[in-house]
Design a protein around this nucleic acid. Structure first.
Lengths: 240, 240
DNA sequence: GAGTGGTCTAGACCACCAA
DNA sequence: TGGTGGTCTAGACCACTCA
């Protein structure tokens, strides 16, 4: 026999719901139909829809609100802002996050980044450089690369308008919602240029965070490299 | 009114099962009773037990095996060995992991570590130092601190016997299973002593990984600090 | 074939929310 | 008060494992 590709009903339902998310039937922040409605639409029981939504909720793709309904996850809510930022102050203090845009230019994708973004080497990209400041002190030098084709209209003015909240901007302006990220961390020494930007001595150890972010359907959409000063901050990670 | 501590039935069942794990009724690797048996024992339906076990399985505390039963998770299985090791070769190659024990001594807990382990400053601890080698090259300098009270009998000989698989040793010798860890990462410069141990130049940037591991009931049991060379390796992390 | 976990259903009731 | 998600039950059937 060939492979008997068995897939549970609820997985198929989950895939169908994901399809609707990809197609944009319900945008970020919007309510999706109730479990009963979806059950009727797909001709399955409410419990099966529930299990499908359970998984989507576990993956932070969707948010349940008891008594109200189920909503497409967004990076705009206060509670999940900075969802992907793992850098924490060593003394546990709350702190103000500020950012200073350094540049926003069109460029051609170098091969290593192109591979990560699943685009052709040399194709058009938007390259953004910025400085992140915690409580007024420069802490992170960020370089962000976006495929130009999907991110039309991204420019310095708009980034400033969103005060550096890139994921909120992607959602609001382009309807692109980031679902998950992969990060690769190493320790590097600051070279002269970076040292100048972060106002520290050349050779200072920095935490290098390379991140690729994915939208629905595991499509890579953003590459970024953050160089972080970890004198009074650390990267916090929970392993299960 | 006071707080109306409502707790769903399945959460209570989950807590009861966790209690049995803490008490050691079923050791690491052992099968727990079937869903039907547990349902009968607790006087609830099988579906309710199922939901409790679902959560335990999602937290990697328990492992389901279709057609066989549900088992207490262990660090001894091939599939989950090195579950907490996020360091990956940059070129994606598989590699041999080797380790060289440097020392294993009794000591007194310094205040910062004592706080993390929820024990008194100055109480007895076991301190282990070792070198991890990937494909023969020294890559990580590890310092491990354990509360001596709970880890009686840990010594160099036994560590060697388990070939450096600490978590396997804790389980087998002491019945202590680590459920989750918290890691704090920073970038640091190698001082002279560390540089010598890892055979590199003083000042080289290293990834510092401070880890606290917890057993059932969120009890901290192990502190460790790993200093990692990240020339041809990186720390891989998935964000959702 | 007996026993286990995995899926699916149908229906009841509860807790929460908004109008 | 009606609609939503959240819990709980009971029972049917499927897929997998092992003796």
């Amino acid at each position: 026999m060939g492979s008997p590709i068995f897939q549970p009903l609820y997985q198929q339902i989950k895939a169908l719901i994901t399809q609707s998310l990809i197609s944009g039937e319900w945008g970020p922040g919007a309510a999706i139909p109730s479990e009963m409605e979806l059950a009727a639409r797909f001709g399955v029981s409410q419990g099966t829809v529930r299990k499908a939504i359970d998984e989507l909720a576990a993956e932070n793709i969707v948010v349940r609100r008891q008594g109200k309904g189920t909503y497409v996850a967004t990076h705009s809510e206060e509670t999940v802002k900075l969802r992907f930022l793992r850098l924490v102050a060593a003394d546990g203090s709350k702190e103000l996050l500020d950012n200073k845009l350094l540049s926003c230019e069109r460029a051609k994708a170098p091969s290593n980044i192109a591979r990560m973004l699943d685009i052709k080497t040399g194709s058009a990209v938007i390259e953004i450089k910025r400085l992140l400041l915690f409580s007024g002190k420069p802490q992170i030098l960020d370089r962000i690369v976006l495929p130009a084709a999907a991110f039309k209209g991204v420019n310095a003015e708009r980034i400033e308008a969103f005060n550096g909240s890139m994921y909120r901007m992607y959602e609001t302006l382009l309807g692109i919602h980031m679902v998950r990220s992969e990060e690769r961390l190493t320790a590097v020494a600051a070279d002269a240029e970076i040292a100048a930007a972060l106002n520290l001595k050349s050779g200072t150890p920095l935490l290098s965070i390379e991140r690729v972010s994915f939208t629905y359907g595991d499509k890579p959409m953003e590459w970024r490299l953050g160089l972080c000063l970890t004198d009074d901050h650390y990267y916090l990670n929970h392993l299960e």
